[in-house]
């Protein structure tokens, strides 16, 4: 049983509504495929991460990746 964080979910919902509304404008503006793909990728990734966060399963974050890389190089102890 996954305990969902409802605040997070409502925030996500608000953003999704806004982005779907925006997507309509994007299509009616006849933007290029490149723009559309970028838009969808960013939106989808934030949706996926948001859902994982709401479910309380936080994946390793970019900050940790960066720290790990620096540790590998030896800049940070």
């Amino acid at each position: 049983m996954i305990i969902m964080n409802y605040n997070m979910l409502s925030v996500l919902l608000a953003f999704i509504i806004m982005e779907l509304y925006n997507l309509r404008r994007l299509i009616s503006n006849k933007e290029s495929i490149k723009v559309l793909i970028t838009y969808v990728v960013i939106t989808a990734s934030s949706l996926v991460i948001g859902l994982l966060l709401a479910a309380g399963r936080r994946p390793a974050s970019p900050a940790e990746w960066i720290q790990w890389i620096f540790k590998m190089i030896g800049v940070v102890k």
Binding site: M8, V11, F15, M18, E19, N22, R25, L26, N29, E31, V35, T38, Y39, I42, T43, S45, S46, I49, G50, L53, R58, P59, S61, P62, A63
Partner: peptide, 18 residues
């Protein structure tokens, strides 16, 4: 057209990152 999706992404990122 990118504003809302970038802002949404950085909000999620801000909650995720630490």
């Amino acid at each position: 057209i990118f504003t809302s999706c970038i802002v949404a992404f950085s909000v999620i990122l801000s909650l995720w990152i630490h």
